[in-house]
Design a protein around this nucleic acid. Structure first.
Lengths: 156, 156
DNA sequence: CGGCTATACTTGATTACGCAAGCAACCATA
DNA sequence: TATGGTTGCTTGCGTAATCAAGTATAGCCG
């Protein structure tokens, strides 16, 4: 009794939160190791390329990329530094606003993405397919969508 | 068509994965800011104190704490450095194995945890309660438990 | 006993992020 | 046009994590 600081009553929210944290960290670690070993990309690199590939003209303002990735502007500056150095994305200036610079997917970038997509997305799909039925997966995706910051999708 | 690297067919697994990543990052950021502002603790600090409070004798080997927190041994060394400096945990040697050193919750640590639990766990509960019915929350927790690294719980 | 391997932990280097501050360009209003 | 506020982006710095390498103890097997 003396050791009970928190009530022992089931606290499902706390369990859900811990599982969310732990599983995302654990999956991020393993997927990241795989992706890096196979293609020399970090997870954020891959997702940036993916966002660009789905964007109009394969180009995005850095601000919008940050929004899409759930990162800050400064993180995107450094992320793109690396991708530009690797030749996977390029810069394009904006005619109407000299402040903005577009990040543009290069042909090399598109090729790299295609090459990495197969194994990476496959690994992601496998992780879920092993554990859930189609119905359960849809339920999970729907429930997760309601959480803060989760309004993201592969389409559009 | 030229811009489609990945199939546009619904890829629920990928959506679920992105939502998991984004929501955990977003929630971690906001909860962390709150917890730090109100009690000067990082999320990992809080969770370490919580694990200790639930442990036998309020003590854990560093290895086991690492396992419970989903961190590496070196991360735990540095985490405990801070908590020891703050007087919230202490060290205890092991009689039978000179390699191991137990991290022990101090009275100050227990008090700090009690103080922080109220608002922090409250915030967590609120985040979920706002979005889910009891039934949905149970479903979410159950689904998340199946993911890699999610085998964690507040009880035992 | 002596040597091997495994385990518990620490330490140094690196990384990925956030935040705060700064700069330059844009916009609105007077 | 001047001026004040906002937006897009970069830079400096701090932090929390990682990995790789190092130290010390344990325990086993010849």
């Amino acid at each position: 009794m003396s050791s009970q600081v928190l009530s022992t009553q089931e606290d499902i929210a706390l369990d859900a939160w811990l599982r969310l944290l732990r599983s995302s960290a654990s999956m991020r670690r393993s997927l990241s190791a795989e992706l890096d070993a196979a293609h020399g990309l970090a997870i954020s690199d891959f997702e940036a390329l993916l966002q660009l590939a789905h964007a109009e003209d394969s180009a995005l303002r850095r601000v919008d990329l940050a929004e899409g990735l759930g990162l800050t502007a400064s993180a995107v500056t450094r992320l793109l530094d690396g991708l530009e150095r690797a030749g996977l994305v390029g810069k394009r200036t904006c005619e109407h606003d000299a402040r903005v610079s577009y990040a543009v997917l290069t042909e090399d970038g598109r090729a790299k993405l295609a090459e990495a997509s197969c194994s990476h997305v496959g690994a992601i799909r496998a992780l879920f397919a092993e554990r859930y039925s189609d119905e359960e997966l849809r339920t999970l995706a729907e429930l997760l969508e309601r959480l803060p910051g989760a309004k993201c999708s592969t389409k559009e």
